[in-house]
């Protein structure tokens, strides 16, 4: 390239082109590098622990109470019985997939839709539910309640 015989007008035009080019380049690189950076920096996020679900501290959970949580995108229920025993059951009623609730007085699970009743081991006791609720394994480790998926 023989730049030396260019006149000043052409030079400014070339400078201008270069300027435009670098603006475009930086802008474009920004649009490419920003996703790259965000992708890599997401490593702080963790996949929900794949085999266990953490349900908080055991001591903080009241006796004779329940807590709803999600397991495999479906509602499930954790119950602490009168004796302090922990039970984790699927909360999807086997009749028409409503979410069952813990009934303290009856010491049983009731479905709000048709009043189906399950005992605390998940067995369908009365009402329309055709099948028992799935039971999940519960562990207490260092006073943390863990439910195996």
């Amino acid at each position: 390239m023989s730049e030396s015989n260019m006149d000043s007008g052409k030079k400014t035009r070339r400078d201008f082109l270069n300027y435009i080019f670098s603006v475009g380049l930086f802008g474009w690189l920004g649009s490419v590098l920003y996703p790259l950076y965000s992708f890599v920096s997401s490593s702080k996020l963790k996949i929900d622990d794949i085999s266990y679900i953490n349900l908080g501290v055991n001591n903080e959970m009241e006796i004779n109470s329940s807590k709803l949580f999600k397991i495999n995108k479906k509602p499930a229920i954790l119950i602490k019985t009168k004796d302090g025993e922990l039970k984790a059951l699927s909360a999807v009623c086997t009749h028409l997939q409503c979410t069952v609730q813990f009934n303290k007085e009856e010491n049983a699970l009731r479905c709000p839709c048709h009043f189906g009743k399950y005992d605390l081991s998940g067995k369908n006791v009365s009402g329309p539910p055709p099948n028992p609720l799935t039971q999940y394994e519960v562990f207490v480790k260092n006073d943390i309640i863990l439910v195996r998926k």
Partner: peptide, 30 residues
Amino acid sequence: LLFLYYKEGNSFAYESVEFISYKVRFGWLV
């Protein structure tokens, strides 16, 4: 980039791809 987040195996693969697509920023793009 996908190698960073993908987990192999029957009970991990789908979940990790879902994680990449929905949770990781610009994971869908990658």
